[in-house]
Nucleic acid binder design. Structure first.
Length: 214
DNA sequence: CGGCTTAATACGCAAGACCG
DNA sequence: CGGTCTTGCGTATTAAGCCG
């Protein structure tokens, strides 16, 4: 950076600002000896300053590698036959990359697990509501169900549910080939076999059968 | 006053020497 | 062989001076 007041035409004056040296007088411009000596001093000072700056830069890089080795668990594993050994920079970098990739995979796995657990919670909540309804129905009419339900009744319930599902399936899927059918099945399941939909179907079938029986 | 030029300085990289 | 140090070089940044 240029010091204020320094003339660009006279670099050695600028040097006086940047690297002041009491042993050399930059004002003594008549002396070639002093000029040369000052030039040399300037060069030396520049070189030293640069060397120091470079050392500082290397220190910063070294600190970075040391920090990585401290932070990354796979860099801390020790070979007990040798003891704690310093890893090369290349190895520290490679292990760091591997560790970051491992963390990414772990994160993805955990996100998938959370999603699955959320779905489980929803399903369990629905089941809980159903069981509570069953319990309430039993409390309202304690003698209902004491008679053994016949296989025929069970079959009728199952048949009613399946019939209802088939109607929905048949109405939503109109395809020309088996390949098309295969492709449609999953989207139909996702759309029409949601827990809430199934619950409504089952309730409808049970109501219908109940009316028929009593 | 804003844009351009110039010079000094800061910064970063790479090559080569050296060391353990 | 890997790390460190020194040094030269190129580029970016900054400040001063000049000019229309």
């Amino acid at each position: 950076m240029t010091e204020p007041g320094a003339s660009p035409e006279d670099p050695w004056v600028k040097v006086e600002y940047a690297y002041s040296d009491n042993s050399l007088d930059p004002d003594d411009e008549d002396s070639d000896y002093h000029q040369e000596a000052y030039k040399e001093s300037y060069k030396d000072r520049r070189r030293r300053a640069h060397t120091q700056a470079e050392q500082k830069r290397r220190d910063a890089i070294k600190r970075g590698y040391d920090d990585l080795q401290t932070i990354v668990p796979t860099c801390q594993q020790q070979d007990f036959s040798i003891g704690s050994q310093k890893l090369s920079k290349a190895i520290v970098l490679q292990k760091t990359i591997d560790y970051i990739q491992f963390l990414h995979k772990e994160k993805k796995k955990q996100e998938e697990e959370v999603s699955t657990l959320r779905k489980d919670v929803t399903a369990l909540k629905i089941m809980k509501v159903n069981y509570e309804q069953i319990v309430k129905a039993h409390q309202d009419n304690p003698h209902e169900g004491e008679d053994q339900v016949s296989d025929q009744v069970k079959f009728n319930v199952f048949q009613g549910i399946m019939d209802s599902l088939f109607q929905s399936f048949n109405a939503s899927i109109s395809v020309a080939s088996f390949q098309e059918l295969s492709a449609c099945v999953f989207s139909w399941i996702e759309e029409h076999c949601k827990p809430q939909t199934l619950r409504e179907i089952v309730i409808g079938v049970l109501h219908q059968l109940k009316n028929q029986l009593y």
